[in-house]
Design a protein around this nucleic acid. Structure first.
Lengths: 246, 246
DNA sequence: GTACTTGATGTGGTTGGACCACATCCTTTA
DNA sequence: TAAAGGATGTGGTCCAACCACATCAAGTAC
């Protein structure tokens, strides 16, 4: 049989065969965003493999943020193609941080790197900037610390998206989980949360203002100082991350 | 039963339960790099789930570059913990490029961003720099185009690693596959490969020299020009990616 | 006629059991 | 002593059945 021939020579595992088939469908455009994969049983029969192997392939795609599996019937059901690059990157980062092979300091440093770059080339007409401004308003009258932090993360995410680079946005998004987790833990180290929050609000406005004045260099510097200042105040000593010239 | 209780309330799928258990083992240090997971059948019995669910969880971890599964017996066999953050990021990028939701231009731009930053803060004593120099020697007398490109990619990867940031290194590594693929396709557009190769060699040496002279700013500019020059010569018009001030 | 009930259908989710290919280790045998 | 061959344990694959869920259509009561 064909598949056995391939498997024998390539040591290709069955679920990888399914993976390859689906990836081809995606590349050729026969499967597009919002499209639905054949039912697991159908696909198994089509590819002459067991449903188990099909499911293993789908689990991987799901972890990669490429598909979403839904039970039942109707439009929400079935395995449908989505586009969530953040899912894969975020999970991967979380797992490798768990194994202590990705230092948190490196994550913070990377965040500063990406975000500084993004604000330096943010487009003032980007809808993401409008969203950032709206988030700033919400944070103005937000008494709850956790909610404030959640808004803060979304604000910074919006800044990153303003540059219009999908890869950078996805990478920043993947750092979101780790950032929020550690930012939350660090609040316990702060001597006066209210004072810190007030400072953060001011800095946020300064960053946004610099962007709108097309002063990318200043904006980048402000972002770097903003982030590193917070981590320093909270007692964590990340690597220096200022992207400006040494 | 406990697990049923959890599943009913949290809508937690069984393989996610397994995933969570393994992640806890990793976080707590009971499972470390090089360590081996219990056999699939054993783990299934311990967690009171089917072997299928255990396998789905392991497939995900494998795709994330956290474990490696090997058949047979002995040290190479079993499911062992590894640390390959690049695997997950690379696969994710490839898949989402396939769905046309990550433009190649954005990938190139991100590459320039990461690599410029890395060379700007490369540590002169980094072993990665020595490797880069060695790769340069090999490229000096390399007649084969494909082999030259492979060495070129490894050279740039070594540059990225010289900054000593594991997250940046992983992200650059994940871009490797896409980079090599497109760099190879673009060679067909070049009027004179030999001339281009000669120019690339010179530029490589200039970059390395700037790093060793602790001139990070110059090195970053050279890297950006080097990469964008190649893509421009090959007829691809990426977004502008110079990280220096506009 | 309308509104409600009730199955039929099709989806992914889960399970247990069976068999295979493979790699090592250990016993048996020449 | 050294070679041959089973015993053991690993992941890889497949199958057949069942469950929970969501929708839809036919049937029923009013």
């Amino acid at each position: 049989m064909w598949s056995n021939h391939i498997k024998y020579h390539w040591r290709m595992r069955t679920h990888q065969l399914v993976l390859q088939w689906i990836e081809n469908q995606l590349s050729s455009g026969e499967l597009a965003l919002g499209g639905r994969l054949p039912a697991e049983r159908t696909l198994a029969e089509q590819l002459q493999v067991s449903r188990t192997s099909v499911r293993e392939a789908i689990r991987i795609l799901e972890a990669m943020g490429v598909v979403r599996a839904g039970v039942g019937s109707g439009p929400e059901a079935g395995t449908v193609v989505i586009a969530d690059p953040t899912a894969a990157l975020g999970s991967a980062l979380r797992l490798h941080v768990a194994t202590s092979h990705l230092p948190v300091a490196d994550i913070v440093q990377t965040r500063v790197l990406l975000e500084s770059w993004a604000v330096a080339r943010a487009r003032t007409d980007s809808p993401a900037l409008a969203e950032a401004a709206a988030l700033l308003e919400k944070m103005e009258a937000c008494p709850d610390t956790d909610e404030f932090l959640a808004l803060d993360v979304r604000f910074h995410l919006a800044l990153a998206e303003a540059a219009g680079n999908a890869v950078v946005s996805a990478m920043m998004g993947s750092l979101r989980e780790a950032i929020q987790s550690y930012a939350g833990k660090l609040t316990a180290n702060l001597p006066d949360w209210e004072a810190t929050a007030a400072r953060l609000r001011v800095e946020h406005r300064e960053i946004l203002a610099a962007i709108h004045q097309h002063d990318g260099g200043t904006a980048a510097g402000l972002v770097a100082a903003h982030i590193e200042g917070y981590y320093k105040e909270a007692g964590l000593g990340p690597k220096e991350s200022d992207p400006t010239r040494p």
